Simulated scan of single mutants.
Amino acid sequence: MELTQSTISDLLTRLGPGPRHLRLPGDLDPQDLVDLLGDRFGAPRTLVLDGFTDPTVEESGGAALLVPFAGRAVTIRAWAYGDQWVGAGTARDTEGVERPVLVVAHRKVPQPLAVAPGEDVDWLERLRRITGWTGPARRPDADWAEIESRLGTALPSDYKRMVETFGDGAFDGYLGLFQEPWADRGEGGLLVWAGTEHEDQYCWRADGDDPDRWPVLVRSFDGDDLVFDCRTAEFVCRILVDPHHPYTMARYFDTHWFMGYGTGD
């Protein structure tokens, strides 16, 4: 079997929404399978390594992917994608032979409760819940003092928590979170902290001494600007789940996730 992205698409179509799994030919390199899925879905989470299951794995972290193997999984990597878990690696069959496997399972992420008027909300924790994020902090040692010194300004605290928590990647594989904002040289005071594949820029206008009070400004690819009087993490939460938001992603996905780039945990 020659592994290509087209082959992967065909295999996932055969599996459907799951839960189902396929045992693949023994001469297939399981690392090639993992690499191709990583190119498509981002950095994976390791559920099983050398026969040892991560003890922190639970339903919200892809545990359903391990059910078909009844303790015989050798190495399983997992990806969250919309309402689906995708897993790949190796497992022993009933005769003890280790073979490459591909597995899918349903992924359910509970939606957060509605926000009451005037309620004090931790929007970063809300964002973790919306995306079902269970991984460890990706950039807990980010040197914000050095970054802020280089930019000449402090940065919003919830943005820094987002970067520390999620690291390099994109919400719903679409809204890319920049690990360091950059200044728009065409207009003073504008810092760009995220962007989309449609070339929309998500910014702050750095007015005032308190960055936690900076509103979010969206500059679309055609140059139009819209300003939203909310903080960064709240803005991301709202575009993920509010179908009436001008930049909503809720029209396209019922379940949301964060696609991490780079090395998986």
Rank of each mutant, 00 (worst) to 15 (best):
E2A: 01
L3S: 02
Q5K: 07
S9M: 00
L12Y: 01
L22G: 01
R23I: 12
D29N: 10
Q31A: 04
V34A: 10
D39R: 15
G42Q: 05
T46W: 05
D50Y: 02
D50E: 11
D54P: 04
P55A: 02
P55W: 02
V57T: 15
E58F: 12
L66M: 09
F69Y: 15
G71Y: 08
V74S: 10
T75M: 01
T75R: 12
T90I: 01
T94H: 10
E98M: 04
H106Y: 03
K108G: 07
L113N: 07
D120L: 06
D122H: 09
L127E: 13
R128Q: 07
R128C: 04
I130E: 13
G132M: 10
G132P: 10
G132D: 14
T134G: 15
G135F: 05
R150G: 08
L151F: 08
T153Q: 09
L155C: 08
D172G: 08
Y174E: 11
Q179I: 06
W182T: 05
A183P: 02
L190E: 07
L191V: 06
E197C: 14
C203Y: 00
R205V: 00
D212V: 00
D212C: 04
V216N: 00
S220V: 01
D224V: 12
D225G: 08
L226M: 09
V227P: 00
V227Q: 14
D229R: 15
C230S: 08
T232F: 07
A233D: 07
V236Q: 03
V236I: 14
H244L: 11
T248D: 03
A250K: 01
T255H: 03
M259N: 14
D265V: 05
